[in-house]
Design a protein around this nucleic acid. Sequence first.
DNA 1: GACAAAATATACTCAACAGTAGATTTTAAT
DNA 2: ATTAAAATCTACTGTTGAGTATATTTTGTC
Lengths: 230, 230
Amino acid sequence: MSLKLDSTGNTAADHDGSVKSIKRHLKKELLTLKRNRILEEATELFFDQGYSGTTVDEIAARLQVTKPFIYSYFKNKEAILAAICETGISEALDVLRAVLAAKGSYRDQLIQTLWQVGDMVIVRQPCVVIYTREMKKLNPDDAQRILSKRSEFDQRIAKLIDDGVKAGEFAAGPHAMDAIWIGGLISWLPVWYSASGKLSKKDVLFGLVEAGLKLIGAGQLTDLEKAGLN
Amino acid sequence: MSLKLDSTGNTAADHDGSVKSIKRHLKKELLTLKRNRILEEATELFFDQGYSGTTVDEIAARLQVTKPFIYSYFKNKEAILAAICETGISEALDVLRAVLAAKGSYRDQLIQTLWQVGDMVIVRQPCVVIYTREMKKLNPDDAQRILSKRSEFDQRIAKLIDDGVKAGEFAAGPHAMDAIWIGGLISWLPVWYSASGKLSKKDVLFGLVEAGLKLIGAGQLTDLEKAGLN
DNA sequence: GACAAAATATACTCAACAGTAGATTTTAAT
DNA sequence: ATTAAAATCTACTGTTGAGTATATTTTGTC
């Protein structure tokens, strides 16, 4: 039958015979909703069973739908994987851009970056884990596109550190690898988070920010700064 | 034809018609050698392409051998995976036991543990990575056996910390999670190591030891201690 | 309510791959 | 040299799963 949508039901409908444009709009929304539901279920399955260990039929079954349905939204199985992998990177990049666009000291920008991106990574944990695990199974085009976003991320962090050093906010010294280390810290957050199992998201994020600051020699997190993070 | 052995050739043969027991012995050695070569190639392939992404025929081809050959050494594909996964844990446990058996202060034992186990983990990188990636594909029996070794590892570390605290060598306080954190540090070493790509094994190991010491509040690594590590 | 178009399902194809039965070669001892 | 046993291969089976051609249902429009 029809695709199993979110538990929110959404029986809502503006029933008057209103203009086409509205209907078109609704339709488009429906399409992306369905696409997203496919990605949600696929993400959960890939996360639990791995990419190769998951069949397209399984994804379909979860949605109470059949295989060709999936194939009308994605060219092939690998396209689903690519979409999932891209989600994590894209959102991280969006968050980073937003943080860097806001004004503030470099120190503040770094703190915010770690906190916000860290938060996003924890929330999108499965995407990030799937990406690191299954990267090698992407076709070259997808791999390239995603990798270039990943590079932009690293470069922006490197520039932030560089600017901060020039402005005298961070300790001078060789920072060549720091951006990579910070990227690493963030990437491995999901593992730390789920491995410990007991720490709250907030605690983990505070830990991340403090580690990041130590890494580039920007000192401890002050109580005031702590209070500013929610 | 015959199994492609190590590049060392090994045409050596004590040619005299010596006693059976020697021949028997040689034969047994050959068997384990072959088994190990299968594991070596499988490890490389699983590491690069994942477990599901690797066929038994591929493993056979690498050894210039056929599939039934493999199946005469392993019950099935999953048994190969289990053997690989077990290698990492078993060797880590061996190293840990040896370190803990040697006398020395608790502080020294911790330093040695981190250094030696860390070294082993870097060397056996692929096994460790494969284990963390493919764990879920093991059958319950294998998973249980391996997990119990993993537990013994964690418990011994926990005990080391505990003893060290009681002896006043480590800072008192809640250490409930520290063993897990240390286990985590060690587990993620391969990723840090290969991700950075530029750091030497030694540098990474020094970093590990220092992180471990900080974690349990045992202070910095002294120059003397550094000198003692090779 | 009829009809075109869109959405979704049924029922298949084809290839890849784990695992095996039985033939063939190699080894080692007499 | 002969022969039994061990080692290894050839050639197969059965299944699974990605991807698709075609039928059916649903939706929207007149």
